[in-house]
């Protein structure tokens, strides 16, 4: 039974066109022209309880819009969303108690007061009895390695400490579904990995479902077995990260260093020759033929060094977005 069930989800915005300059302003004022912009088109997926799913896509691809539709902050133009048995856009109290949203670049904690004060407010808002709230706070604080930071004004905390306190505030009501929008944005490498470890541990302990967007591939590779790739508003991939890598880069790169220079026609039938320069050779070989090709290469040529590389997934996805392929 899916905890999150999305079918044919679409969101279209009306955007007013305006040319720059005074004439443009005047024309805009007199005769407004609208253009439909499809932010999300016909997206469907299901997520089971306890899954950790990564949400990938370039800026403006539609990830945040989709995430906001799942929390009920944006009405879908078309399609159907169910989260924990609720329709998010109705934002019923029972639904809101079961989810949480963390946004890396926005904060809900009160700037001038220690996090504990914001936690007390949240406890009242979610109707959590004080003793329960205290217990949960100390458990989560242990997990997050937060101590006296909780009694210092938020404005005096480092970015990493602040993010951890944000997570604590967002999880005080023990939500079953976590929506995390760029939770590690701007953090240093140490703080990033601390947040990652916490999320993995939290998921293991509570069985909460996590849907996460991130710019940092390391977040996704460390936490998510399953990846949703959204491109120009459409769902482009739904499945394990490795499958995505295969799909994006069906070939692997073989790097050869020979004892003496070879002719380019000698490599016919051994994959695609990318470059040959004296003793240095680079070949692109389909994954399923890799072992055969490598065996033949070793047999035919005086090989000094051989190296097989997988292009990094970040570059693959980055390249994909740059080329506008898909």
């Amino acid at each position: 039974m899916a905890l999150i069930d999305v079918r044919g989800l679409s969101k279209t915005y009306k955007v007013a066109d305006k040319q720059p300059g005074f004439a443009g302003t005047l024309r805009h004022f007199l005769q407004r022209r609208y253009r439909d912009v499809a932010a999300v088109q016909d997206v469907s997926f299901q997520i089971a309880p306890g899954e950790m799913v990564g949400f990938l896509g370039a800026n403006g691809a539609g990830k945040t819009t989709t995430l906001k539709m799942l929390c009920g902050l944006i009405y879908p133009s078309d399609g159907d969303v169910q989260v924990a048995g609720h329709r998010p856009q109705r934002r019923q109290a029972e639904f809101l108690r079961r989810i949480t949203l963390v946004m890396g670049q926005k904060q809900q904690l009160m700037w001038d007061l220690p996090p504990l004060d914001s936690l007390r407010v949240n406890a009242a808002v979610y109707g959590i009895p004080d003793d329960v709230a205290r217990r949960r706070t100390s458990e989560l604080a242990d997990l997050l390695e937060l101590g006296e930071e909780l009694t210092r004004p938020v404005r005096k905390l480092s970015l990493g400490q602040r993010m951890k306190a944000e997570l604590l505030a967002a999880l005080l009501h023990e939500p079953e579904v976590l929506f995390l929008d760029e939770p590690t944005l701007g953090l240093d490498v140490n703080a990033q990995s601390r947040v990652r470890q916490f999320l993995a541990e939290y998921n293991r302990r509570t069985g909460a479902t996590v849907l996460l967007t991130s710019h940092y591939m390391a977040d996704i590779t460390a936490l998510c077995q399953r990846v949703l790739l959204i491109h120009q508003g459409r769902l482009f991939h739904d499945g394990p990260l490795e499958v995505l890598a295969d799909q994006l880069a069906p070939e692997r790169e073989v790097h050869l260093e020979l004892e003496r220079p070879a002719q380019s026609d000698a490599f016919e039938g051994l994959g695609r020759l990318e470059r040959i320069e004296g003793c240095e050779v680079r070949l692109l070989v389909p994954r399923d033929q890799l072992t055969i090709v490598v065996a033949q290469l070793l047999e035919r040529f005086p090989v000094r060094d051989l190296d097989v590389k997988d292009p990094p997934i970040e570059e693959l996805i980055g390249g994909l977005f740059r080329q506008g392929r898909v």
Binding site: K68, C71, G72, L73, R91, A93, E94, L96, R97, I99, T100, L101, M103, K106, Q107, Q108, V125, Y126, G127
Partner: peptide, 18 residues
């Protein structure tokens, strides 16, 4: 302006009250 209205709307409490 800062987008923190989203946090208010996701609280299980009336947003006008908050």
């Amino acid at each position: 302006r800062e987008g923190t209205l989203d946090f208010v709307l996701l609280k299980p409490i009336d947003s006008q009250f908050w």
